[in-house]
């Protein structure tokens, strides 16, 4: 076992982990952050998304030993007071009822939040393209797009060629 320390949702945490243990396993099985979910295990579906040093990454493709000393944020991350973006994203998803079974949704909302925190100017088309890697089997994509448009409007940053 290896001792690993990192910041999780703003708090310093320490875990003893097996070398081959993924961050997904540590977060779910030990840390209890159940918003981070297993689905494909190969980084294609997005349900295990976390923000690593503020950027969306797949926690199934990271060994926990690799995040020693780094900053990890999950969908639960309770930084609502400090992050208006977080709050706006959550409201938009609730208002758009952008979920069915919702297994994938926290990760999608977290991805949008991470992308907007990185680049507040992102438009709806850019966010949609970036969300290509977040799968939803229920097909809640129209509602997710509705949420995105509630957040950033429908006019593209480059003059846009929106339909509808």
């Amino acid at each position: 076992m290896t001792s690993v320390e990192f910041r999780l949702n703003g708090a310093q945490v320490a875990f003893d982990v097996a070398g081959r243990e993924t961050l997904l396993e540590t977060l779910r099985d030990t840390a209890g952050t159940t918003s981070v979910r297993y689905c494909c295990g190969i980084g294609v579906c997005g349900t295990c998304t976390v923000l690593l040093d503020a950027l969306p990454v797949s926690s199934c493709l990271l060994l926990t030993v690799m995040v020693d000393g780094r900053d990890v944020v999950t969908a639960e991350g309770a930084d609502v007071r400090h992050s208006p973006v977080t709050r706006r994203v959550r409201d938009a998803f609730v208002d758009a009822q952008a979920y069915q079974c919702s297994y994938c949704i926290p990760a999608i909302a977290l991805t949008v939040r991470g992308l907007l925190q990185q680049d507040p100017e992102m438009d709806a088309d850019e966010l949609k393209t970036a969300l290509g890697g977040n799968l939803c089997r229920c097909g809640s994509y129209p509602q997710v797009l509705d949420a995105v448009r509630r957040l950033v409007g429908t006019s593209g940053r480059r003059g846009g060629e929106q339909d509808g």
Partner: peptide, 16 residues
């Protein structure tokens, strides 16, 4: 659906 908020922030509990 009173669970909307939980579903979005990831607190909604699944079988898993």
């Amino acid at each position: 659906t009173a669970d909307a908020w939980d579903r979005v922030i990831g607190r909604f509990g699944f079988a898993v």
